[in-house]
């Protein structure tokens, strides 16, 4: 029972971090109906930026803040340079999709260059900043507690941003009817850029939290986690913010419990097992909308 509870707690903490990445997929999908596969690489980039600024002795918090801004800008830049031109030319959706996969390889490989960070694993500053918490036989690391608290706070802020602010209203408007959003006087390109920025910023925070939990990073760290977070977003219902959170939690808990009882080899495939099961039972995901009705 206690090993089970321990696995669930591990899963909740990890799942919230997945949720932070998943919202990036979900928000961009919301405004553009596009799956941005470069998102996982931005997450890895975010972790590396933290690593870089810490190595300059800037302190962990300042390093994370700088990384958040730079990663947000990178995500924005990816859209401006690679995706927006395709959008303006009204190219087919698959072209944009492939482009995002290409961009993900470019970012990952630039990080791997010998004179940049190199392809080998690097030690990442631990986020075990205070004593571990022990309840009975279960030990919860402080990095997990931090992961959980930061993710919950951030997802709360994001929910407020989307549901309670003017720019959030604009995001929802663009999601429903881009032409009408233009005519209403919304600077649509600016709101799209902002959405990419927020997604990139959240990915960087997830990179710092997960990097600090495992204590190690590598340039390819975003590919598996990126796909898992994407699976989480789809499980919850892509385009729905709280869906991404629940999806992340489901994926995190299931994979930790599975790893506990069936061995760590089954950890990574679990997200996709859940994805397939959910899509068979509920094709739009747990909280997904049945496509927006145009009237």
């Amino acid at each position: 029972m206690q090993t089970f509870l321990g696995a669930v707690i591990n899963g909740l903490a990890l799942g919230m971090a997945y949720a932070l990445i998943a919202v990036g997929y979900s928000m961009v999908f919301g405004v553009l109906r596009l799956i941005n596969f470069s998102h996982g690489a931005v997450y890895a980039f975010g972790a590396y930026m933290v690593f870089f600024f810490v190595s300059l002795k800037l302190g962990l918090l300042a390093s994370i803040l700088l990384s958040v801004v730079i990663s947000g800008l990178l995500a924005m830049l990816v859209d401006k340079v690679a995706l927006e031109p395709l959008r303006k030319k009204k190219s087919i959706p698959i072209a944009t999709l492939i482009t995002t996969i290409g961009v993900s390889f470019i970012i990952q490989n630039v990080l791997s260059i010998e004179y940049v960070f190199g392809s080998e694993r690097r030690a990442f500053p631990s986020t075990n900043l205070f004593a571990n918490l022990s309840i009975g036989n279960i030990t919860i690391q402080s990095s997990q507690i931090i992961m959980l608290i930061v993710a919950v706070l951030l997802l709360g802020v994001l929910t407020f941003l989307v549901q309670g602010t003017k720019v959030g209203l604009a995001m929802r408007a663009i999601e429903q009817n881009r032409k009408a959003a233009h005519l209403a006087g919304i600077n649509v390109d600016l709101v799209i850029s902002f959405t990419f920025f927020i997604g990139g910023a959240c990915a960087a925070i997830a990179g710092a939290l997960i990097g600090g939990y495992y204590g190690v990073i590598n340039p390819g760290m975003g590919s598996t986690i990126g796909l898992k977070a994407f699976a989480a977003a789809v499980v919850g219902g892509i385009g729905v913010l709280h869906g991404a959170v629940v999806g992340g939690l489901v994926v995190g808990v299931v994979e930790c419990v599975a790893a506990q009882y069936l061995g760590s080899n089954v950890r990574d495939p679990m997200a996709f097992v859940i994805l397939i099961l959910i899509l068979i039972l509920k094709p739009n995901g747990l909280f997904g909308k049945k496509g927006i009705t145009k009237v």
């Binding site: 429903q176 009408a180 209403a184």
Partner: peptide, 19 residues
């Protein structure tokens, strides 16, 4: 018409005053 179907009347109007 091109209204925003999932938003309320109030929100639709607010968007008209977005500028």
């Amino acid at each position: 018409r091109e209204v925003f179907p999932a938003l309320t009347v109030h929100e639709n109007l607010r968007l008209g005053a977005y500028s």
